[in-house]
Simulated assay, not measured.
Amino acid sequence: MIAELVAEVGPLWHERHQAGLASRPRCRAVGAGAKHKLVFVDRLLATLVHLRHGATHDVLACWFGVDRSTITRAIGEVRPLLAMRGCTIAPGVRLRSLAEVVDYLGASGQTGIIDGTEVRVRRPAVGRKDREKFISGKNKQNAVKFMVVTDAGGRLLFCSPAQPASCADITHARQLGLVRLLADGPVVEILADAGYQGLGAQTGGQVVTPPHRKFRKDVPDWYEEMRKTHSSRRIRVEHGIAHLKNWRALARHHGRREHMTDTIQAIAGLLSHQQTIALAADERM
């Protein structure tokens, strides 16, 4: 997989690097001066170790024998390129937007599952504008939220950009354009939890949520049966989220909040690629 990433991301990094050199006034030719101490393969490895194991920039700098600022710059260059790859569903076929996910589900006849999840982040500084936006109403902690879409088997199809955790799940889905995409696109079935109740009516029943609880006493058996059946169908998205948070960079984020979207989408792309390879191996067996 490392060789594939080098072959895919390496030319993009080199192109961006050369464009950056050529875009500013220079007193010497492009390519002159000191050379990189950290070649691209090492930059990629440092980024992968940082995302997977949460190793700090100081530790990585010691491992690779360079300055901490070199590691910070390398991760800042490689991480957005990994985020641009999207989620792999087949060799050479990737989904990079929610619209592509809806089209894929409609064309394949599969059921999608959506859920929102949060990652704890550092508290914004005192006096910062909109400081309270990051406080989660559910966990009472400073966090960011993103929406995850998987298929019925739990394979990752999409991770949305991060939003402050005060944003409700249903509001986030509407901001991403899910209602419009389902109205204008193919007919699909998407399972969701109670946090998305209300989208079913707006999407003609394409978003399926558990039934409202209308009984305070003497809850009928059919109600609990329906909720249990729905929960067992959508549990796969929880497994997908758990696999995402096995990557230490998402266990708790200690870096800048502005980088959360790239971090989330880079990890989702790497994880979906692993899932696709594992699925293809199982099918061959």
Rank of each mutant, 00 (worst) to 15 (best):
I113F: 14
H36V: 12
V207M: 02
G106R: 09
L21A: 11
L21S: 08
M84R: 08
N142M: 04
L270Y: 07
V237G: 11
D103L: 08
Q163R: 05
P186T: 02
R123N: 01
A278H: 08
L244E: 15
T72N: 09
D184W: 03
L182F: 09
S272W: 05
V49Q: 13
N246K: 10
Y104I: 06
A281K: 02
Q18W: 06
V179Q: 12
K133S: 03
L270A: 05
T261S: 13
A280S: 07
A3K: 09
D184V: 00
A173G: 09
L82G: 06
L5Q: 11
D221I: 02
A34K: 06
A165H: 02
E15R: 09
G204F: 10
L182K: 07
T111K: 10
P11I: 13
I2A: 07
D151W: 04
S23W: 12
P11E: 11
K145T: 01
P25E: 05
S23M: 10
T209E: 03
G20H: 03
G200S: 07
H36R: 15
G10S: 14
K145E: 02
T209F: 11
L156A: 07
G154H: 11
A194H: 01
A152N: 04
A152C: 07
H17T: 04
M226A: 14
I113C: 12
G240Q: 13
R24C: 03
T171F: 02
L250F: 07
D193P: 00
T72P: 00
F146R: 00
T209C: 12
D58C: 05
A192W: 13
Q18G: 06
E258Y: 11
Q110L: 13
R68N: 01
F215L: 10
R120V: 00
L250M: 05
C27H: 12
E225F: 15
L271G: 10
M1H: 05
F134E: 01
L81P: 00
G255T: 04
V49K: 15
V188S: 02
L191M: 12
A281E: 01
P80N: 06
A152W: 03
R96T: 13
P211Y: 11
E283M: 08
Y196Q: 14
L279C: 07
P25S: 11
G204I: 15
E118W: 00
V59A: 05
H243S: 08
T47W: 08
P91Y: 02
T111E: 08
A61N: 00
Q18A: 05
A201K: 12
E4Q: 15
L181H: 14
I113D: 10
E15F: 05
G20R: 10
I75E: 03
